[in-house]
């Protein structure tokens, strides 16, 4: 059974299109990523799915139920962690958790098993006010509160924004654990490098889905080669490459240039020829593996 079926969702806010013909499915027990920059429509999409917003048109079935008609049934089965820290910062860790447990008609003890691994990491601070926690700890508390009623499907809106790399890593490990327990997870993030942590991802840009697949497939479909060029004259070489191959063909990356072009024939050899013609001082030219960000750029520039 599909945990989530989204078909042809449109949403506009005063003439601004937030979502345009968005369709995708998420299987039960899947860890699904919505990847896109700020303003791509991730938050609107999640809010529509979890019954907080109404779409202009289109249909969504969550756990087999229509999200518009059966929102009451769905609301108690959804776990949701909004983008901003949305717990009560003047209440303690334990008071927050207790509150959300009671509001969802359950108790901490009843579902302690599910949150044990996460909550035990902050339990020693249970009498501290939530507002005084560090970013990583706030996140763990937020996740505990979202899980306390044992939801069947968990929605996380940009959970890793503003969190340091160590806490981010730990967070993704926690999600993997939850996945093992059979919870379907839908997570949004603006950080392309987090795509590889998901089973499947949808790449969102300006309210439209550009691609849906496993991260590895998306990278495999990156039809062109990505080439790393090292040279002492970075700036000059970059400019020349752009003149010759288009403005999105070359970008600076610290001490090197990343180069790619859509036409297959412009291979590494051709590039070498170009450098010789122009008499550039080139240290090395290597084919490297593209990442999701490279693919994202490729998909963004496909139409133009």
């Amino acid at each position: 059974m599909k945990a989530l079926e989204v078909s042809h969702i449109y949403k506009t806010y005063n003439d601004i299109t937030a979502l345009k013909d968005v369709s995708f499915n998420v299987a039960e027990g899947e860890l699904f990523g919505l990847i896109g920059p700020d303003g791509a429509g991730k938050t609107s999409l999640i809010r529509i799915i979890i019954t907080l917003l109404l779409a202009d048109s289109g249909e969504i079935h969550l756990l087999g139920k229509d999200v518009v008609k059966e929102y009451k049934y769905l609301r108690s089965r959804i776990g949701y962690m909004p983008g901003r820290f949305s717990l009560y910062s003047d209440l303690t860790v334990l008071e927050n958790l207790n509150f959300f447990a009671t509001v969802f008609g359950t108790s901490i003890e009843a579902n302690y098993n599910l949150i044990k691994n996460i909550y035990s990491q902050i339990e020693m601070f249970k009498d501290r006010k939530a507002g005084d926690l560090s970013g990583g700890m706030k996140q763990k508390l937020g996740l505990s509160c979202a899980l306390i009623h044992k939801p069947e499907v968990l929605f996380l809106d940009e959970p890793t924004t503003g969190v340091d790399a160590v806490s981010r890593k730990e967070f993704w490990e926690m999600l993997q654990e939850l996945k093992q327990k059979g919870i379907t997870i839908i997570v949004s993030t603006p950080y392309m490098d987090e795509a590889e942590m998901c089973d499947r991802v949808a790449l969102l840009q300006k309210g439209e889905i550009m691609s849906i697949d496993t991260p590895q497939n998306i990278i495999n479909e990156f039809s062109e080669e990505l080439i790393e060029i090292k040279t002492p004259d970075l700036y000059e070489v970059k400019e020349k490459l752009r003149l010759e191959f288009g403005k999105n063909s070359a970008f600076m990356f610290g001490q090197s240039i990343h180069f790619s072009t859509s036409s297959k024939s412009k291979s590494k050899e051709l590039l070498n020829e170009f450098f010789e013609e122009n008499n550039f001082n080139i240290e090395s030219v290597n084919i490297i593996e593209p990442n999701i960000e490279d693919c994202f750029i490729k998909l963004m520039t496909k139409d133009s």
């Binding site: 609301r75 983008g83 959300f100 509001v103 008609g105």
Partner: peptide, 11 residues
């Protein structure tokens, strides 16, 4: 604070 979202989603 965004807590209203969570309250709305609750029963």
């Amino acid at each position: 604070m965004g807590t209203m979202e969570v309250l709305l989603i609750s029963p």
